[in-house]
Simulated scan of single mutants.
Amino acid sequence: MTLEELAGMLEETGFPFAYDHFAEGESPDPPFICYLLPGSDNFSADGRVYFRISEVRIELYTDRKDPGAEALVETVLDDAGIFYNKSEVWIQSEKLYEVLYSMEL
């Protein structure tokens, strides 16, 4: 999956999104999404990359627990046939919940 395909998928949520972060002062009101590809877990064969696997993180930010927003993101991922793991944390300094969807594509 390319970055363009991933962005197209995120567009289906209707939430504002940006790669890694929004520019200072341009962060939208929650809910919003940041996504990034922080690394890879490629498969090798004969000392070469045989199959490329990108780590993907989709971070959903909300100012309150929002099961509806989470369900929307999960529906988009499920419809695309993507297996993901989910975790959540409250970011006290930002007063935001971060729901993290981790996957490999």
Score class of each variant (00 low, 15 high):
T2I: 09
R64W: 05
S44L: 11
I58D: 04
I33M: 02
K65R: 10
N42E: 08
E11V: 14
V89L: 12
E88K: 13
L105R: 10
E24M: 02
M1L: 12
N85T: 15
I33L: 02
M103N: 05
F32A: 02
M103C: 07
D41L: 08
G39A: 02
L36F: 06
A45Y: 10
I91D: 15
H21R: 11
P31M: 00
I91L: 08
E74I: 02
E94K: 13
H21M: 06
F32Q: 00
E59Y: 00
D20P: 06
F15R: 05
F17W: 06
R57M: 10
I33V: 06
T62W: 04
Y19T: 04
I53N: 14
A69I: 05
T62A: 03
E11W: 11
T13A: 03
D66E: 04
E104S: 13
T75Q: 14
L77C: 10
S40I: 04
S102Q: 07
R52S: 12
E94G: 02
A71V: 01
I53L: 14
R48G: 10
E11D: 15
E55T: 14
F43Y: 09
I58K: 04
L96K: 07
A7F: 03
D66C: 06
D78A: 15
D78Y: 11
R52V: 13
E12F: 07
S102H: 07
E88Y: 07
S27M: 12
Y97H: 06
Y50W: 10
E12T: 09
K95S: 15
E11P: 05
P28K: 01
M9S: 14
S93K: 14
E4Y: 13
Y50N: 11
K65L: 05
F83K: 13
P67E: 07
E88V: 07
E11H: 15
R52L: 07
W90V: 09
F15L: 06
L72W: 03
G39C: 05
V76D: 01
S93A: 15
P67V: 12
V89I: 14
Y35N: 00
E55W: 05
W90E: 08
T13C: 05
M1I: 13
L60D: 01
M103S: 12
L72M: 15
E74C: 13
M9P: 01
N42H: 14
S44K: 08
Y50R: 09
E4Q: 14
S87M: 03
R57W: 07
E104R: 11
F15D: 03
L3C: 13
W90N: 09
G47E: 01
Y97C: 08
F17Y: 11
C34L: 07
V49K: 10
V89R: 08
K65E: 05
C34W: 02
G8R: 07
F51R: 11
F83E: 14
S87F: 02
T62V: 10
L105A: 06
A45W: 04
I58T: 10
M103I: 13
S27R: 09
D29S: 08
P38Q: 08
L6N: 02
